[in-house]
Amino acid sequence: MKVAVIQFLGSNCDLDSVWALRQIGVTTDLVYYKDFEEIYYKYDGILIPGGFSWGDYLRAGVIAANTSCMKLVCELSESDVPILGICNGFQILTEAGLLPGALIRNDSLSFICKWVTISVESKKSVFTKDLVIKSQLKMPIAHGEGRFATDDLNKLYKNNQVVFKYLGENPNGSMDAIAGVTNLNGNVLGLMPHPERASDNIIGGKDGLKILKYFLT
């Protein structure tokens, strides 16, 4: 798969994501959001990286979600293009309506950066179809607005859309400790923890590669 890591103004995990994907052999380009509309057809997969797009002003992800680049991403998702949103990328995907729910301010009201353990709860997402249910992954979180909220939790469970949950302490007060969700179709995944920061033993572990390696197929 050839993957575009989309760089918005204020993305800051863009280079980290490119680094992690290239480490495992995924053909990856960093694509500036304005350029994406011209060259989107070259790519088979999309990664929307973490950071503070447009400074997280107003609401994390809302300004990026309003760009014509994201309108195009929404269209592409309908043709089954795999799309992974990490942290701010997750926030952008919910703001754009590609994923259910919203990410609101942590219950501690402060930014939190630490390693957490999450469990795999669903194989509905293309990114987790080969993972074992209830298996555990260790990854860092780093966010101020990562508390997952939705008005219809039952529907998410019924459709198997809850993909990851925090194990042990719920770091941000997310509903049911939800750390990641997928869309009905399973091709769009968003999660708050950073798989690209768990991509090498020397920086603390490489469980994140279990998610990223889908882009190798």
Partner: peptide, 25 residues
Amino acid sequence: YTHYDHEVGVRTILKPNVCDVAVLR
């Protein structure tokens, strides 16, 4: 340090809970 993003950049080798020094690859 849990309020600071000390991981961005994928360079942080030793984490602040086990090291008082910033060690980056």
